[in-house]
C-alpha cells in the first residue's frame, strides 16, 4: 500500500550511498482537496534531480529549489503551499487545497 513511497526512501538511501547530496521532502499536513496524501515523499539531490511527488507536479519546482538550499544549509524547513500562498511561493495548488511539506537533509 505504501510501496511507492518506500521505493523513494530506498532511492534516497542509494543516492546517499553513492556520495550524492540528498534531501527528503515529506507531506506532513493537508487541508481541503490535496493531490497527494500525508506521508508522500519527494527525494531531491544537490543538482535538482528528483523522484516521487508531494503534489503531483504543482509545487515540485518550488520544493526542489528549497531542498537544494536545505542541502547547503543543513537546517530543515517547513514549507506551505496553497491558493493563498501563490504569490509568495510563485507556485500554487490549482485544486484549491493547501499542503505543508517538511524538507530535511539526509546526513
Amino acid at each position: 500500500m505504501l510501496s511507492t513511497d518506500t521505493d523513494i526512501l530506498a532511492t534516497a538511501q542509494a543516492w546517499r550511498r553513492d556520495g550524492r547530496d540528498v534531501a527528503l521532502a515529506t507531506v506532513i499536513e493537508t487541508w481541503g482537496s490535496a493531490p497527494r496524501p500525508v506521508g508522500s515523499h519527494l527525494v531531491i539531490d544537490g543538482e535538482g534531480n528528483f523522484l516521487g511527488s508531494v503534489s503531483g507536479g504543482c509545487v515540485e519546482g518550488a520544493v526542489i529549489t528549497e531542498a537544494v538550499e536545505v542541502i547547503e544549509a543543513g537546517t530543515p524547513r517547513v514549507l506551505e503551499f496553497g491558493v493563498a500562498d501563490e504569490t509568495a511561493w510563485r507556485a500554487g495548488l490549482s485544486c484549491g487545497g493547501r499542503i505543508r511539506v517538511f524538507v530535511e537533509r539526509i546526513d
Binding site: T6, L9, Q13, L24, E104, I106, D107
Partner: peptide, 14 residues
C-alpha cells in the same frame, strides 16, 4: 535525517 536511520527504516521495510 541521519543516513543510518534511513537505512534502518529501509531494512525494516525489506
Amino acid at each position: 535525517m541521519r543516513a543510518d536511520l534511513l537505512n534502518d527504516l529501509n531494512a525494516e521495510r525489506a
